[in-house]
Simulated assay, not measured.
Amino acid sequence: MKRALAIALVSVQFLLLLALAFLPHGTLWSVNLGVVVAAILLASAGAVIAVLGVLGLGPALTASPIPREHAPLVTGGIYGLVRSPIYTGLMAGGLGLALIGSSVWHVTAWLALVLLLAGKARWEERMLVAEHPDYVAYGARVGRFLPRVGRLKP
Score class of each variant (00 low, 15 high):
13 Q>I: 11
12 V>R: 07
131 E>M: 14
129 V>Q: 14
128 L>Y: 01
6 A>R: 07
128 L>I: 00
60 A>D: 02
6 A>H: 09
96 G>C: 02
132 H>N: 01
143 G>Q: 08
61 L>A: 13
102 S>P: 02
152 L>W: 11
71 A>C: 06
137 A>S: 13
73 L>S: 10
13 Q>R: 12
85 P>Q: 03
60 A>H: 07
34 G>Q: 07
64 S>C: 05
116 L>Y: 05
109 A>Q: 09
102 S>C: 02
115 L>Q: 12
1 M>Y: 13
144 R>F: 08
132 H>G: 08
125 E>V: 10
60 A>Q: 08
87 Y>S: 08
46 G>C: 01
25 H>K: 11
29 W>V: 07
103 S>F: 04
88 T>Y: 05
42 L>F: 02
94 G>S: 00
54 V>Q: 13
103 S>L: 01
21 A>T: 05
107 V>Y: 05
120 K>A: 03
26 G>Q: 04
5 L>D: 11
95 L>Q: 10
69 E>L: 15
115 L>M: 14
42 L>C: 03
112 A>I: 01
13 Q>M: 15
32 N>T: 00
47 A>C: 11
144 R>G: 11
88 T>L: 06
69 E>A: 15
26 G>F: 01
99 L>F: 10
96 G>H: 03
59 P>Q: 04
130 A>D: 15
38 A>I: 00
14 F>W: 10
27 T>H: 13
61 L>Y: 08
40 I>R: 07
103 S>G: 05
37 V>K: 04
118 A>W: 12
96 G>A: 07
28 L>C: 07
31 V>F: 05
14 F>I: 07
74 V>L: 03
148 R>I: 13
37 V>N: 10
123 W>T: 05
89 G>M: 06
143 G>I: 06
7 I>W: 02
97 L>G: 01
91 M>Q: 11
57 L>Y: 11
69 E>M: 14
148 R>G: 12
122 R>G: 04
109 A>M: 08
22 F>T: 14
71 A>H: 04
44 S>G: 15
90 L>V: 04
16 L>Y: 02
141 R>E: 10
75 T>E: 13
20 L>H: 06
73 L>P: 00
30 S>Y: 08
123 W>H: 04
101 G>M: 12
24 P>T: 05
134 D>L: 12
117 L>I: 06
10 V>R: 05
147 P>Q: 06
123 W>I: 02
79 Y>T: 01
137 A>W: 09
83 R>Q: 04
35 V>Q: 02
40 I>F: 04
58 G>A: 01
95 L>G: 13
94 G>F: 07
95 L>H: 00
